Simulated assay, not measured.
Amino acid sequence: MSFHGQITDPADAHRTAAPARTLPVYDARRLTDGDGTATIVLDDKAYQLRITRAGKLILTK
C-alpha cells in the first residue's frame, strides 16, 4: 500500500503519482474540550461525538 503518492512497488514506477491532497486534521480531545463529548452539526442536524473509556470514537445522531 502506498501513501501520499509514493510509489512502493517497482512495477508501478511507470505510473504518475497523483498530487497528495491535504486533509484537515482535528484532535478529538481538543474538539471535546476534555470532557469527552462534542456536538457536531451538519445540515441543521446535531450529532454527538463521544470518546469512550477505551479511547474509541462514537458518532451518534
Rank of each mutant, 00 (worst) to 15 (best):
A13F: 00
K45A: 15
T39G: 01
S2R: 04
R53H: 09
T8I: 13
D44I: 02
I7C: 13
I51D: 01
R21I: 15
Y26W: 13
V25G: 09
L31Q: 03
D44V: 03
L49K: 04
A13P: 08
A28Y: 00
H4S: 13
P10D: 04
L31F: 00
A18G: 08
D33Y: 04
Y26C: 03
G5C: 04
T16P: 02
A13K: 15
G5W: 07
D43V: 05
A28M: 03
I51Y: 05
T16M: 11
Y47H: 13
A54N: 10
T16F: 07
Q48D: 14
Q48P: 01
T32E: 00
T8F: 07
L31A: 05
L57S: 02
K61N: 12
I58H: 02
G55F: 06
K56H: 10
A20M: 12
L59M: 09
L42E: 02
I40K: 04
V25F: 05
Q48V: 12
R53T: 13
L49C: 02
L49F: 02
L31E: 02
D35I: 08
V25S: 13
T39D: 10
L31R: 05
Y47A: 05
A46F: 01
T60M: 06
T37R: 15
T52G: 06
R50H: 06
M1V: 08
I40H: 08
P24D: 07
R15G: 01
R21V: 15
L49G: 02
P19V: 10
T22H: 09
P24V: 05
P19Y: 02
H4A: 14
T8G: 09
A46C: 05
A54G: 10
T37S: 11
A11K: 14
D9M: 10
L31T: 03
I58P: 00
T37H: 11
R29E: 11
R29I: 13
P10S: 09
R15I: 08
I58L: 12
Q48R: 14
D44K: 14
L23T: 04
A38D: 01
R53Q: 12
S2L: 08
I7T: 13
T16N: 07
A46K: 08
A11W: 11
G36N: 04
T16Y: 02
D9C: 11
L23P: 00
P24F: 03
V41G: 00
R50S: 12
P24S: 08
L49Q: 03
D35S: 06
Y47I: 04
A20N: 13
K45G: 06
A54D: 06
A11C: 01
R30C: 03
I7L: 10
S2H: 07
R15Y: 11
P19E: 03
V41N: 05
R30G: 01
V41M: 05
A17M: 09
P24A: 08
M1C: 06
D9K: 13
L59V: 13
Y26G: 01
A54E: 05
T39Y: 04
R21T: 15
L42R: 15
D44T: 09
G36H: 06
A20E: 11
